[in-house]
């Protein structure tokens, strides 16, 4: 029986190879993982950075731009893992359940910390007190855009539309939604939000005229604006961003709505201080790289590389501020 002999020979060969290799491979890995203590971080183990958005969006690009620098400094692989869903709440929940050993981090979007709590029932929102903050990263402005074919160019045009406006948001409980909800509430325009999954689909919907307007992060919209395929109506920044000098801000036009996106690196609660410090040092190095600085400029991002304590203050202040305006105008962002 040739078949049988073949199997025997093959089995013997693989056994021999297995024995030879097992001397070099590590022993069993059962119950391991706990041994990677704070002393030897990163201890040759890879680091994973969660991104709660789809690949290609600005959060993803930022994570990837940083991963390389951090990997070089730590000397281990740093991989970016996209876990999109619920504006990053899924990734944040998953992060909370991970071992606090510095091997799992996340690029946390400010909107999840200071806007989502306004949109979901109390108790469902994720509290940033449940995480360690390694470092702030950068800020991004929102711009209200429309397709040239819509014939609208100013906030006045929106008021005169004489019909309900549909506006695309990058998701429920995002800065994109908040900025527009506030604008339309203050201008008295009747408008319906249509949530999409992130910036890129929202952009496509505005381009195709599926929705009248959309609020998109500047970095994601700038190319299409420059190409003339999108018209900027207002920005939601405090001052005119240097990238769009001719577009008025909503504040200029008399509306109290500065809304920004901010990003930071989060780690699970209980990550040892020494590991946090080591990571912060690594990110500082990555921030300093010339490539990364150019990346910020190319994507219209304003650096906000503050430490964890400062960032926590910033975000808490934003949440309190927004809560006040939302209550004042009786805006409902989501399901209460």
């Amino acid at each position: 029986m040739t078949g049988n002999n073949g199997v025997t020979r093959w089995a013997a060969a693989s056994l021999a190879l297995g024995l030879a290799l097992s001397t070099t491979a590590c022993g069993g890995n059962l119950g391991s993982g706990a041994n990677s203590g704070a002393q030897d971080f990163p201890g040759g183990q890879p680091v994973t950075i969660y991104v709660g958005q789809d690949p290609g969006g600005s959060t993803d690009l930022i994570a990837r731009a940083l991963a390389k620098g951090v990997s070089d400094d730590l000397g281990v692989a740093v991989t970016v893992e996209n876990k999109p869903g619920a504006n990053g709440a899924l990734a944040a929940k998953e992060l909370a359940g991970k071992k606090p050993d510095g091997h799992t981090l996340m690029v946390y979007n400010g909107s999840l910390a200071y806007i989502t709590p306004l949109a979901v029932p109390p108790g469902e929102a994720i509290d940033i007190a449940g995480y360690e903050i390694i470092t702030g990263i950068s800020q991004d402005d929102y711009v209200l855009v429309t397709a040239p074919s819509s014939g609208m160019a100013t906030v006045e045009d929106l008021k005169k539309a004489g019909r309900p406006i549909t506006y695309g948001t990058t998701g429920v409980g995002t800065g994109s939604q908040l900025s527009q909800a506030l604008l339309f509430a203050q201008t008295g325009v009747t408008a319906t939000p249509v949530p999409f999954d992130g910036g890129s689909p929202t952009l496509t919907a505005v381009l195709g005229g599926q929705v009248d307007v959309g609020s998109i992060q500047l970095g994601e919209a700038i190319e299409q604006i420059k190409a003339g395929k999108l018209k900027p109506i207002v920005t939601f920044a405090e001052k005119r961003p240097s990238y769009l000098p001719d577009t008025p801000t909503a504040v200029e036009q008399g509306y109290t709505i500065p809304v920004q996106q901010s990003r930071a690196i989060f780690a699970p609660k209980g990550t040892p201080q020494s590991v946090q410090d080591r990571l912060r040092a690594s990110f500082q190095k990555a921030f300093g790289a010339a490539d990364y600085k150019k990346f910020n400029e190319d994507n219209q991002l304003t650096p906000n590389e503050v430490d964890g304590t400062k960032l926590r203050e910033q975000w808490t202040a934003s949440l309190d501020g927004y809560r006040k305006v939302v209550d004042q105008f009786k805006i409902t962002l989501g399901k209460k």
Binding site: V7, L17, T24, N29, L30
Partner: peptide, 24 residues
């Protein structure tokens, strides 16, 4: 022989060569 061989081959491929973190 077959089952021993298969397990050995899987060990070589997944644990030794690819370092997949499957419990072993």
């Amino acid at each position: 022989i077959g089952s021993a061989g298969v397990v050995a081959a899987f060990y070589v491929i997944f644990v030794a060569a690819l370092s997949v973190p499957i419990p072993h």
